[in-house]
Amino acid sequence: MENTEPSSIDPNLYALYSSARKPRILLAASGSVSATEFSTLCHCFFEWAEVKAVVTKDALKFIDILSLPRGVTVYTDEHEWACWQRIGDSVLHVELQRWADMMVIAPLSANTLGKIAGGLCDNLLTCIVRAWDYGKKQVFMAPSMTASMWKNIVTERHAMLVDELGVALIPPVLKRDPSTGEHVESSGSMADNSHISATRE
């Protein structure tokens, strides 16, 4: 697949909130081994923004919640229904969508990419994405998958569909493919944390 750099985040967003409050970042992780980097990435964003975290059930296999910065609330699928008891109660995925100024999904697994491209919303993360106001707020996604999955024509089609939504994909980088041990141009390895957290500049 062709790697294209994501557009930078609108600087007006930061000018707007610099005098009043920090920008609000919804940082999410789906099930990928790159989720082991989620804590470090969370600390990077926490240096300049208010951060809330959303993690899928599979992402929890790779994340040590206790290693995240203090002050960062972590939401899982269970929280979606725990917050709702009866008609009229607030809906978590709607409230998180309203709270955030921007969303970053890192890592974005092939499975979650496929769900988003197809409009599926079967967990908290994909419900937030489905409810997102793409006309007003940005979404950045950093894919993480094997080289064969990243270069697959199905992934290319899914990437084109999310691009039509206005999503900015932060392309994978040249790394060793864990499935083959080889360094390849489109390895599918998630971009470095410093690159992902610098997308605001």
Rank of each mutant, 00 (worst) to 15 (best):
M1N: 06
N3I: 05
E5P: 03
P6W: 15
P6G: 15
S8D: 05
S8A: 12
S8M: 07
L13K: 07
Y14C: 02
Y17Q: 00
S19K: 10
A20E: 10
A20H: 06
I25L: 09
L27Q: 01
L27C: 05
L27G: 03
A28G: 00
G31H: 08
G31K: 09
S34N: 03
S34G: 05
A35R: 02
A35C: 02
T36N: 03
F38A: 07
F38V: 02
S39V: 09
L41A: 07
L41C: 04
L41M: 08
C42M: 03
H43C: 07
H43W: 05
F46K: 03
E50K: 12
E50C: 04
V51K: 13
V55N: 09
T56K: 04
K61W: 09
K61C: 04
D64I: 09
D64L: 14
L68W: 02
L68H: 05
G71Q: 05
V72L: 00
Y75K: 07
H79L: 14
H79P: 00
W81A: 09
C83Q: 13
C83P: 04
C83V: 05
W84T: 04
Q85H: 10
R86N: 01
R86I: 04
G88C: 08
D89N: 07
S90P: 01
S90W: 11
V91N: 00
R98M: 03
D101R: 00
D101W: 02
M103K: 03
I105S: 02
I105A: 00
I105F: 06
A106H: 08
P107M: 10
A110F: 00
K115D: 01
G118Q: 11
G118D: 07
G118V: 01
G119N: 02
C121I: 02
D122W: 00
L124Q: 08
L124K: 10
L124E: 09
R130W: 11
A131C: 05
W132K: 00
W132C: 00
W132A: 00
D133K: 12
G135S: 13
G135Q: 13
K136H: 08
K137M: 09
K137S: 07
V139T: 04
M141I: 10
S144T: 05
S144P: 07
T146V: 02
A147P: 01
S148Q: 13
S148F: 15
M149F: 11
W150G: 06
K151D: 12
N152W: 15
V154R: 01
T155D: 13
E156Q: 11
R157P: 02
H158C: 08
V162R: 02
V162K: 06
D163F: 08
D163N: 12
G166C: 06
G166I: 13
P171N: 11
V173H: 10
L174K: 14
L174M: 12
K175G: 12
D177Y: 11
P178S: 11
P178L: 14
G181H: 15
G181Q: 08
E182W: 14
V184C: 09
S186M: 06
S186G: 12
G188L: 10
G188D: 05
S189V: 10
S189T: 06
M190A: 15
M190N: 04
A191D: 09
D192E: 15
N193C: 14
H195W: 14
H195G: 12
I196Q: 10
S197M: 14
T199Q: 12
T199A: 14
R200S: 13
E201N: 14
